[in-house]
């Protein structure tokens, strides 16, 4: 039963705030993904929870106990680093046993626990191997096992699969999810890969400039992004800025009925929700390029002012370069002042 609480945490490096008045509660057994571009402060936040950075202000608490100033070796957290950071002068067994030895557990107990955790990560019998005899994926599994063997209250993963290839990343991602579900361990996972976050998380926290842009379940973040930034960061999204007058949004010939007050607005439409209709001359836009992916096709659309949009269609052969078209967004959202003002589904 472990709950992680982050209260009003700020970390400043000189004048810049890497993390700015950040609040988050991770419930018992929950897997939360911190998602954001590089420089959004997600790694700094994770390092503050692990004890490797001290917050400029604010508090970190685990199970109600304030650990803000507790050094990493005294925290009930286990961290998996991006570079796996295995100790190359020790074999796999010694890497896993090091933390247990520091806790002065009896030899037999150490052996039992190391073997159990190797079994858990699918590396039974690899104890005697040198770390450089392992593949990238195996090394990352050992790094995960090294944290798990100590049964931490909070598991912290700092882009653990970033250095692996796509295929391996997907497999390890599923394994981590399985293990996390089985152990019911409270987990905070940092990534800049939206597909990783969508696949893994119970809840995604999208970060930008050290602040939370949106914290919600993956499907909510995907379907109802709270801000244009989230809309643009998760999945592919057409973002068009324009003016609203008399219930109509306009940007360079592209018009959409939008029942909000007059002013500026940012329109967000997923490619799969942007329908294109062939017209005989005129039209809102022209087709720039068609890319056929077999199962679907992506149509690049050019508005008169040169703005590019993407539309996903099922049939590539219906469309060709230069063809005049109209645009019919089936579902879209509109933002003003960094907040959603309208959603049509």
């Amino acid at each position: 039963m472990s709950v992680l609480e982050i209260r009003d945490v700020t970390k400043a490096f000189g004048a810049t705030k890497a993390v700015d008045s950040f609040n988050l509660t991770v419930g018992d057994g929950e897997l939360v993904c911190l998602l954001g571009p590089s420089g959004s402060g997600k790694s700094t936040l994770l390092r503050m929870i692990g004890g490797f950075e001290t917050p400029t202000s604010g508090h970190v608490a685990i199970d109600g106990e304030d650990v803000t100033r507790v050094p990493p070796e005294k925290r009930p957290t286990g961290m998996v680093f991006q570079s796996h950071a295995l100790w190359t002068h020790m074999n796999v067994f010694k890497n896993l046993a090091f933390g247990l030895k520091l806790r002065r557990l009896p030899e037999a107990e150490i052996k039992r626990r190391v073997e159990a955790v190797l079994e858990l990560v699918g590396l039974a019998g690899y104890g005697h191997r040198a770390t450089n005899q392992l593949s990238g994926g195996q090394q990352q599994r050992v790094a995960l096992a090294r944290s798990l063997v100590l049964e931490p209250k909070i598991l912290l993963l700092d882009e653990p699969f970033a250095s692996l290839d796509q295929h391996l990343r997907e497999r390890l991602r599923e394994e981590v999810r399985d293990i996390q579900q089985r152990l019911k361990i409270t987990t905070l996972f940092v990534t800049h890969g939206q597909d990783e976050a969508l696949a893994l998380a119970d809840r995604i926290v999208v970060m930008r400039d050290g602040r939370t842009e949106q914290a919600a379940a993956p499907d909510v973040v995907y379907r109802e992004p709270a801000t244009p930034f989230v809309a643009g960061f998760i999945g592919t999204m057409n973002l068009v800025e324009g003016a609203v007058a008399n219930g109509t949004f306009t940007h360079s010939g592209f018009t959409v009925p939008l029942p909000v007050g007059d002013g500026t607005a940012t329109l967000a439409v997923r490619p799969e929700a942007l329908e294109i209709v062939a017209v005989n001359g005129g039209g809102m836009a022209k087709i720039h390029r068609v890319t056929d992916y077999g199962t679907h096709a992506i149509v690049d659309i050019e508005l008169p002012d040169g703005t590019r949009l993407k539309s996903m269609t099922s049939e590539a052969r219906d469309w060709s370069h230069g063809q005049p078209i109209d645009l019919k967004p089936r579902a879209f959202a509109a933002y003003r002042d960094n907040a959603a003002i309208h959603r049509s589904n």
């Binding site: 070796e73 005294k74 961290m79 991006q82 570079s83 295995l86 100790w87 090294r146 944290s147």
Partner: peptide, 26 residues
């Protein structure tokens, strides 16, 4: 690698222990 030292802190080694068990052997 600094991460190696941090990983050792993470599993419970004091800074002195990290120097003896990780940094110096490396």
């Amino acid at each position: 690698d600094r991460r190696m030292e941090e990983a050792a802190r993470d599993v419970g080694a004091s800074p002195v222990r990290v120097f003896w068990s990780i940094t110096l052997p490396q």
